[in-house]
């Protein structure tokens, strides 16, 4: 095929095609080259700016990178006998962190379901208010948890509740968006069928939509739980209770308490990995029907 075309084509035409093609490739390469160059300049100058505004420089700090983990591990190793005790002592705080994440995920997902149902075309109870609910979820999603948590700590004092509310609000925003994407892909036939027999809005949603989307909701909810465990540990560090708070206390005592800090690091790491594993096999089950 190619050969017949070539033989039929006058030689001059091939030359122009060839020149055009080369020209195009060159221009394309030039564009990519320029893009890569801009990117490289941005990365390097960005690195230098960040390095300049940092308290300690990158190159001076690099060789000290291993010092703290080494101190931590050596002290934990020396006092290895204390570790099981420290791990045991950290458990209540760990449970609090997991509880914060779990409650926030449940409440946030419930809020997300409501926002998504009110913000999806074709399903919304008040179709005119769809943009309002969408903007609300956008704003809830945009406010970082730490902002809400710090403000609430000022009003409520430290403890798990400010962190829980902060994470729940953010989760409601994030889930509202994800769930409404799920809702948009629902099959509308059951809903229309229900409508034709005179079902109310609540019945249409509960019997026509929820059975279709529930596996997806649950799978996204589990993924969010993984994220929220991390968020709840971080908020604890800012003062909202749980394992993060214990970690901060152990670290401020510094040397001599490093075995305690090491135990908390270990517990936190294992929890995150365990929750990740558990949720990923559950999600596999939900989407593929097998572990």
């Amino acid at each position: 095929m190619a050969e017949t075309t070539t033989s039929a084509m006058p030689r001059a035409d091939i030359e122009t095609v060839r020149a055009d093609y080369l020209h195009m490739t060159q221009r394309r390469r030039l564009y990519s080259g320029v893009l890569i160059l801009i990117f490289a300049v941005l990365m390097i100058s960005g690195f230098n700016t960040a390095d300049g505004r940092n308290a300690g420089g990158f190159w001076e700090g690099l060789h000290r990178l291993g010092d703290f983990p080494a101190d931590l591990i050596s002290e934990a190793y020396e006092k290895a006998a204390n570790l099981p005790g420290h791990i045991f002592n950290a458990l209540p705080a760990l449970i609090e962190t997991v509880n914060i994440a779990a409650v926030a995920t449940i409440l946030g997902c419930a809020g997300g379901v409501i926002f998504s149902l009110l913000g999806t075309r074709g399903l919304a109870y008040w179709p005119r208010l769809i943009p309002v609910f969408r903007r609300i979820t956008d704003i809830l999603r945009a406010i970082p948890e730490v902002v809400v948590a710090l403000v609430l700590i000022f009003i409520m004092g430290g403890g798990p509740v400010p962190a829980m509310i902060a994470i729940a609000l953010h989760t409601a925003g994030a889930m509202g968006k994800l769930f409404s994407e799920v809702n948009e892909n629902t099959d509308m036939k059951p809903v229309e069928g229900l409508q034709s027999v005179g079902a109310t809005w609540g019945q249409r949603i509960w019997l026509g939509v929820i059975p279709q989307v529930l596996p997806n909701y649950l799978s996204y909810g589990l993924l969010r739980f993984e994220i929220n465990i991390r968020a709840s540990a971080i908020l604890g560090f800012v003062g909202a209770g749980g394992i993060g708070y214990e970690l901060k206390n152990a670290l401020t005592f510094g040397q001599g308490k490093f075995d305690e800090a090491a135990a908390i690091f270990l517990v936190l790491f294992l929890t995150i990995v365990a929750v990740d594993q558990l949720s990923s096999s559950l999600r596999n089950y939900l989407t593929k029907g097998s572990f």
Binding site: R53, R64, L251, F269
Partner: peptide, 16 residues
């Protein structure tokens, strides 16, 4: 969280 703690010991506080 753990990385920020370890890294700020080596590099001090800041954007880097």
């Amino acid at each position: 969280l753990i990385f920020t703690i370890i890294l700020s010991r080596a590099f001090g506080p800041g954007p880097l």
